[in-house]
Nucleic acid binder design. Sequence first.
DNA 1: TAGATTGTTAATCGATTAACAATC
DNA 2: TAGATTGTTAATCGATTAACAATC
Lengths: 213, 213
Amino acid sequence: MKHGKISNNTIRRMPRYLRALDELTARGTNRVSSFELGHILGFTASQVRQDFSCFGTFGQQGYGYHVPALREQISQILGMHKGRNAILIGCGNIGKALLCNFDFSSNGINMLCGFDTNPELVGTHLNGIEIRPVSELGSFIADKVIDMAVLCVPPDSAEKAADALNSCGVEAIWNFTNADISSPGSKAVIENFHFSDSLLTLCYHIKERATRC
Amino acid sequence: MKHGKISNNTIRRMPRYLRALDELTARGTNRVSSFELGHILGFTASQVRQDFSCFGTFGQQGYGYHVPALREQISQILGMHKGRNAILIGCGNIGKALLCNFDFSSNGINMLCGFDTNPELVGTHLNGIEIRPVSELGSFIADKVIDMAVLCVPPDSAEKAADALNSCGVEAIWNFTNADISSPGSKAVIENFHFSDSLLTLCYHIKERATRC
DNA sequence: TAGATTGTTAATCGATTAACAATC
DNA sequence: TAGATTGTTAATCGATTAACAATC
């Protein structure tokens, strides 16, 4: 699978292709053209082909793309078969909702355990996942490969928690703290998930629409 | 406040400026240059000035920007003072976490009530917000202005729920269903919040990093 | 074979960066 | 006044779209 530097826009479109392909599979569709796939997602056929061509050649001239094969290719591109180990820090409302609700395993993630400072939570299980005391974080990570930490602590503890994870050698942080964590020496990849950024964007569009009418 | 067509990238940067300004305020900083503000967020000074210039002139030559004034301007741009009315559909784990956890009011949103089909939830309150039966959705909306619906139903009910909201004249949908809702006749603005898209992007970066080493 | 559709190269469009006169 | 920093225009860079030869 060739590739040089892939643009961020292209990378962010890959999970959307995956979702569209799953939808097509659910409908029993076996074959799709770049035009049709683009149409589902609101992209041009050109863009679809351009995106895929960054990673290799997955289609067939005159035919299009075989849905199950393309889905598999994209899932490879995204590294979904790697069985990444993850932990979750901060088992308050959001952390709890993620542990109980989000299907980590179908996205290729093994959620090993949660961590919290609250003694009432420590020792309990959420959706079969044990909650451990944050004090054990270092020793827990020490003898394992932890690819990802899902960070759900309150905003004011975010920076400190991120530093701790960085020094433990965690590869990636999925940041739900609503604080920007930008530890200067940070080596981990950070994916920020800011609820209010998304909400405020929506508010802007509501306002714009109102002033146009 | 002049403006023509603002690029999507610029709009999505506005909430981040807001967050950076709140951080500066918390530190007691009263004045900031485009360079400093950009530095916090990883943008160039040029980009910061270019972004703001889409909406007007908020700075002062030789001085920079007055932090509280700029914050207020951005909050105006985003329409945060409008007191938008919102409802939440689907009070399962994610819906519940949002109702209990997310500070709607500090983002200028009045969360009026939740809706669910589960008779055990109907009539209860979450964080002081009443849960009503979905059957009452139409009549509830009928005599009010509902600017936004936060959609937290299971993926397979997403399309149907979105259609219902559309026909009630809801302006905007904040979509947490992990399904793409793209009702062709849809007039509402839709902001998708897909957990797995974000997670898979992170997985990609982990994989890339691993293959580079 | 004729029709369809790919992968890729070239053209266009838009967004970011650089430069600089204006001015606080 | 001298220094700093804006707002804006011009230059560059990158991403999207269009076109088309290759070929299933």
